[in-house]
Simulated assay, not measured.
Amino acid sequence: MNRRTFVAAGLTGVASAVACAFGITPRSVRASVDTWPSKQINYVIAFAPGSNSDVLGRIMAQKLGEALKDNVVVENRAGATGMIGSAYVAKAPPDGYTLLGASIATHAINPSLFKDMQYDPVASFQPITIIGMNANTLVVSNESRFKSVQDIIDAAREKPGTISYASSGIGTTQHLSGVLLEQIAGIKLVHAPYSGRSAIPDVIGQQVDFMFEGPTVVPQVKGGRLRALAVTSPQRLKSLPEVPTMQEAGVKDYEVQAWQAIFAPAGTPRPIVDKLYQALAQIIHSPDMQARLEGMGVIPSAMSPDDFAVFQKKEIAKWGDLVKSTGTKVE
């Protein structure tokens, strides 16, 4: 490249940067947006098959593919409380062809638990939307001796450190739901993190005493394999109206709500972000999807990218305070 070509290329790059700063989309970017998507979109889910993120992600991927008239392929990259999949997407090209199905754990709780996450939950990503909010449900095997939350508390007080609960990993809301119960009830439980696989079969088989889990347990409860003792939201769920809240079950001031969301790599062109959000919001607001999500115990959201960015920062601060106050550490 001669000096004149080098200078011209440099000026073109500066012009593009200035144009983007003032909200002017460069012609090359406009052309790419006009033809987007022109190939398969990879929807990376940071958790194992069967998890809440996986179930909701697969529903959204199918609907998104139909809306965009192109293939949206799901790929599970589970492990390290969602950090493996998140780090993968953080390093992907910001062209709209790689999305992340993430959660409150990967993008709000993990920063207060892990020193080396290999990604910045804010700077490495472009928020697209929150699919919905959900409570966790405290469940035991249908054959369990525990008939109420108070039964678990009484057993834990009688024999501290003998009652176990499962979660999908350290730092997830399922884990912190147990930590909060310990703190409020003044008990000591044994935490069994199931990173990379579902704990539901072991709870059904009573290898673990109980667990807090999201929407994926609703079919198991309705099918009679699990018994729901309480939900962690301040109100009862439409999907399980007969199940009391933790506060109604006698655990004062108890509340935990999680969320499932979609991110893109930081630097994804705003027109593509807007096109993605518009398609996803339309899907989430559709009557059939609203009914489907509510039936799973999920409160539909479709929060805008800008509002989501503000909300995420508040969530990082909120959960950081809880982790600090309970002394929770990664073992």
Rank of each mutant, 00 (worst) to 15 (best):
R3A: 14
R3Q: 14
R4A: 15
A8I: 12
A9Y: 10
A9I: 12
T12E: 14
V14S: 12
C20G: 11
A21F: 14
I24Y: 14
T25Q: 11
R27A: 15
V29M: 14
R30G: 07
A31W: 09
V33W: 10
W36G: 01
I41H: 04
I45D: 02
A48L: 09
N52M: 12
S53I: 02
V55L: 13
R58T: 07
I59D: 10
A61F: 06
L64F: 05
G65C: 06
A67Q: 15
A67W: 04
L68E: 04
K69V: 08
E75C: 08
N76P: 04
A78F: 04
A80G: 04
M83N: 12
G85N: 06
A87V: 03
V89R: 02
K91I: 04
P93R: 12
D95E: 13
D95L: 12
Y97H: 15
L100M: 04
A102H: 11
P111W: 13
D116I: 11
D116V: 12
M117K: 11
P121I: 10
P121H: 10
F125N: 03
Q126W: 12
P127W: 09
I131A: 04
I131M: 10
L138Y: 01
L138T: 01
V139F: 01
S144H: 12
R145N: 12
Q150I: 05
D151L: 08
I152C: 05
A155T: 09
G161W: 09
Y165E: 00
A166E: 00
S167L: 06
G171R: 01
G171M: 05
L176T: 03
L176Y: 01
V179Q: 03
A185M: 08
A185I: 08
I187K: 09
A192D: 07
R197G: 00
A199M: 11
A199T: 06
V203Y: 00
I204K: 09
V208G: 00
D209L: 01
M211L: 13
P215D: 13
T216W: 02
V221L: 07
V221D: 03
R227Q: 14
L229Q: 05
L229P: 01
A230S: 10
P234T: 12
K238A: 15
S239T: 07
P241G: 05
T245W: 10
K252Y: 05
D253P: 03
D253I: 10
A258I: 04
A264G: 07
P265R: 05
T268F: 11
T268M: 10
R270P: 01
D274P: 03
K275M: 13
L280W: 04
A281Q: 14
A281F: 08
I283P: 06
P287L: 08
Q290H: 07
L293K: 00
M296K: 02
M296W: 13
S301W: 05
S301H: 12
A302L: 11
A302M: 10
F308V: 05
A309L: 11
V310A: 15
K313P: 02
K313R: 15
I316G: 06
A317G: 08
K318I: 07
W319V: 00
W319F: 14
G320Q: 11
V323D: 11
V323P: 05
V323M: 07
